[in-house]
Amino acid sequence: MKNWLLIYLIIGLVGCKAMFVGSASVTQQWKKDGISLQGKDFRKCYDRSENAKTDRSKYIENKKYSERTPEEQNEWDLEIDRLMGIYFDCAYELGYRFKPDLGWCWEESLNMKRCRELKKYRN
């Protein structure tokens, strides 16, 4: 009986963590041999995406959100998608695959859009 109580307690705490803290970031869903993208591989992909920034994107990035025009915000959203693509292509080239944690891609989750986009990197 005590073992079942412990199991329910652990499941409850994990559920509360996901609900109040949020799910892990998308970069932690990239795995190679069961290990998330980290260290020098993370830095290599991060640097690749940083080096791909244009002067215009750096200008918009450095503006406060409240000071951006709607056009600049749309431009920044597109730029983020482009830079994330560069980052994810790099991770894929290094042998990492998009293998989300259980529940990360649930139909009603905020991550569902990202899961659909990254489906091509699963295998």
Rank of each mutant, 00 (worst) to 15 (best):
R114G: 02
N74F: 04
F98D: 04
K53R: 15
E108A: 13
L78G: 15
F98S: 04
L5Y: 12
K53Q: 15
Q29N: 08
D41S: 06
N51C: 02
K120A: 10
M112I: 15
W76P: 05
L118R: 02
Q38S: 14
P100E: 01
R97F: 03
T54P: 09
L83P: 03
D101V: 01
D55S: 13
D81M: 13
I10R: 00
R48H: 03
V14N: 04
Q28Y: 07
L37V: 12
E107W: 15
D89W: 00
D89P: 02
A52M: 10
K53G: 13
I60R: 04
L9N: 06
E67W: 00
N62G: 14
A24S: 15
L118D: 01
W106V: 15
I60Q: 06
T27E: 08
L37C: 08
D101P: 08
W76Y: 10
L94T: 09
N111C: 00
C105L: 01
N3I: 14
C90D: 04
K119T: 01
K113G: 12
Y92E: 07
P100T: 05
G34A: 08
E71G: 10
L37A: 11
I7A: 15
K53C: 08
K31D: 02
E71F: 04
C115F: 06
K32H: 07
I7Q: 09
V21Y: 06
D41K: 06
E107A: 12
Q28W: 05
K53S: 12
G95V: 01
I35W: 00
W104H: 05
